[in-house]
């Protein structure tokens, strides 16, 4: 089994690279778009609130795989051809944006009103209040559930092998078809996914602890 693993290691590494890239890009899209969704829902402006709310409620209720196929196959039929990678980033980013949006919105609403009142009373504009007062305090509420969703995102990237993205899952699948040892190859993939998550969550937890200690 070890020998087999060694033989396929180069492809695996390539797959790991693709999975990492996909995770990073999707996360970036999800964070940015999610933040915009949260701001839109908090804006109090009717059209924006409605649009963001409908988007959130609809998208998060649809399985990621369905969304992925819609983005890849159905859009292609409609004349919009996305590469597998683009479709994957759009889908994962667009889906996880709804989850991150809700995390952000909840955390922002959770910051004591007195905080923004004190900042507004000094004459700050709403943007500064958000940037300097509300968001730094929302950060700790955001971090744990955001880390959680990140682990889900990493796992969901494995769905993209279905649209031909040569990620870790794709390589594991290809290798197991070639060697007729699906257990071994998928096990290895599973271990790599786990290590990913472990490293990331350890890092994020350490970060959170550090900042908290500093604020004594």
């Amino acid at each position: 089994m070890i020998a087999l693993w060694r033989q396929y290691l180069p492809q695996f590494f390539q797959g790991v690279g693709v999975t990492l890239e996909l995770t990073a890009l999707s996360l970036l899209v999800a964070l940015l778009f999610g933040f915009l969704l949260a701001l839109a829902r908090l804006s109090g402006w009717r059209g924006l609130v409605l649009g963001a709310t409908v988007y959130t409620e609809v998208i998060r209720a649809i399985p990621v795989l369905v969304l992925l196929f819609l983005a890849y196959y159905s859009l292609a039929q409609a004349g919009i051809k996305l590469s597998g990678m683009t479709a994957a980033v759009v889908t994962l980013g667009g889906f996880y944006a709804t989850l991150y949006g809700e995390i952000f919105r909840g955390a922002i609403l959770g910051v004591d009103r007195g905080q923004s009142e004190a900042a507004l009373a000094l004459g700050m504009n709403r943007r500064t209040v958000m940037r300097k007062i509300v968001l730094p305090q929302a950060f700790f509420t955001i971090l744990p559930p955001a880390t959680n969703q990140l682990s889900n995102l990493i796992k969901d990237t494995s769905l993209v092998f279905t649209v031909g993205v040569t990620d870790l899952m794709f390589q594991a699948y290809a290798a197991s078809s070639a060697t007729f040892q699906p257990m071994d190859m998928l096990l290895l993939a599973g271990i790599v996914y786990f290590v990913f998550y472990l490293v990331l969550s350890k890092f994020l937890t350490r970060w959170e602890l550090n900042v908290q200690r500093r604020r004594g």
Binding site: D112, G114, Q115, E117, A118, A119, P136, Q137, R215
Partner: peptide, 9 residues
């Protein structure tokens, strides 16, 4: 303010 409302961060 009654509750001080200092910025804790």
């Amino acid at each position: 303010f009654q509750t001080f409302n200092l910025f804790p961060h």
